[in-house]
Amino acid sequence: MSAVLDARLFTEVFITLFVIMDPPGTVPIFLALTSSMTHKQRARAARTAIFVAAGVILAFGLFGRQLLSYMHISLPALQASGGLLLLLIAMELLTGKMEEPKPGAKGVNVALVPLGTPLLAGPGAIVASMLFVQRSDGSAQDWISISLGFLAVCVCLWLAMRFANVVHKVLGESGTVLVTRIAGLLLAAIAVQLIADAVTAFVQAAG
């Protein structure tokens, strides 16, 4: 088994992406963004968000460096843009606008943006995946270790969102609204931290 899987690399990939993508922390935000959905719509949104996040991270992991270089985009710029987008979503959660149903909405769009990206497949996860691929020596063992580590995190994310309905039933409507506001505050803090880190990187690069 050790010849096929590098346990150390697998563990490093899993822990790094687990901390960055934070499956337990997605539960309150997922509940807030899907508050007007039915049970089936919420389950479909969870699946869609995972597929979108996986697709984005895999694409950037394989071709991210070339794409950013071709478009003359730096990693701090990508990080700052993701932070700004998350900040806008956080403001909607704090003001309750995210909970207002939109005419003709099917209730699954939030699975693409902001759930799939930039919440799950955010700048941190994208950069981490690019770095792991860059560090790889190209062997089958490294690719399998990185892929399985990433897959394990995706399973954890799906389980967290899939059983968010249980949390919703326990909290009730009032509790869900309270969690929504707290999630908005936490998401705003995450967004500001992303922007601050990007600004720091810009300053260091200029110096």
Rank of each mutant, 00 (worst) to 15 (best):
residue 172 G to F: 03
residue 131 L to V: 14
residue 160 A to D: 00
residue 165 N to L: 08
residue 164 A to T: 05
residue 166 V to H: 14
residue 174 S to Q: 13
residue 162 R to A: 15
residue 159 L to P: 09
residue 130 M to V: 04
residue 135 R to D: 13
residue 128 A to R: 06
residue 141 Q to V: 07
residue 174 S to W: 00
residue 150 F to N: 05
residue 134 Q to Y: 00
residue 173 E to R: 11
residue 165 N to R: 12
residue 143 W to Q: 12
residue 155 V to Y: 07
residue 167 V to N: 00
residue 166 V to N: 10
residue 156 C to K: 01
residue 146 I to V: 11
residue 154 C to E: 12
residue 159 L to V: 14
residue 130 M to A: 06
residue 137 D to A: 11
residue 153 V to E: 02
residue 171 L to K: 03
residue 138 G to H: 05
residue 167 V to L: 06
residue 148 L to P: 02
residue 134 Q to N: 12
residue 157 L to P: 04
residue 135 R to S: 14
residue 140 A to I: 13
residue 131 L to T: 14
residue 144 I to S: 13
residue 144 I to T: 12
residue 172 G to Y: 00
residue 169 K to Q: 13
residue 144 I to Q: 14
residue 155 V to I: 15
residue 143 W to G: 15
residue 131 L to M: 14
residue 160 A to F: 01
residue 150 F to A: 15
residue 145 S to I: 07
residue 138 G to V: 10
residue 142 D to E: 05
residue 153 V to S: 01
residue 172 G to H: 04
residue 150 F to S: 15
residue 127 V to K: 11
residue 158 W to V: 07
residue 135 R to L: 12
residue 140 A to V: 11
residue 128 A to N: 07
residue 162 R to E: 10
residue 160 A to V: 00
residue 156 C to Y: 01
residue 143 W to V: 02
residue 152 A to V: 09
residue 152 A to Y: 14
residue 153 V to L: 01
residue 168 H to R: 14
residue 147 S to A: 15
residue 151 L to V: 13
residue 128 A to K: 01
residue 135 R to C: 07
residue 143 W to K: 12
residue 172 G to L: 04
residue 144 I to L: 15
residue 127 V to N: 10
residue 162 R to M: 13
residue 147 S to P: 01
residue 162 R to C: 06
residue 133 V to Q: 13
residue 126 I to P: 09
residue 145 S to G: 06
residue 151 L to Y: 00
residue 167 V to M: 09
residue 165 N to Q: 10
residue 170 V to Q: 07
residue 171 L to N: 01
residue 136 S to M: 01
residue 143 W to A: 13
residue 162 R to G: 09
residue 160 A to C: 03
residue 147 S to T: 12
residue 148 L to W: 05
residue 157 L to G: 02
residue 142 D to I: 00
residue 149 G to N: 08
residue 147 S to Y: 06
residue 136 S to A: 13
residue 140 A to P: 08
residue 168 H to T: 04
residue 161 M to L: 03
residue 165 N to K: 06
residue 158 W to K: 11
residue 162 R to T: 06
residue 161 M to C: 04
residue 150 F to C: 12
residue 130 M to S: 08
residue 171 L to Y: 10
residue 164 A to G: 09
residue 154 C to Q: 15
residue 174 S to A: 12
residue 143 W to T: 04
residue 144 I to H: 12
residue 165 N to P: 00
residue 136 S to I: 03
residue 157 L to H: 07
residue 134 Q to T: 09
residue 140 A to N: 10
residue 135 R to P: 07
residue 128 A to S: 14
residue 126 I to R: 06
residue 166 V to I: 14
residue 127 V to D: 03
residue 142 D to N: 14
residue 172 G to T: 07
residue 172 G to W: 01
residue 145 S to V: 00
residue 141 Q to F: 00
residue 129 S to L: 12
residue 147 S to V: 05
residue 127 V to A: 15
residue 132 F to N: 07
residue 139 S to I: 01
residue 154 C to W: 01
residue 138 G to R: 08
residue 153 V to M: 12
residue 153 V to G: 03
residue 137 D to R: 10
residue 138 G to I: 10
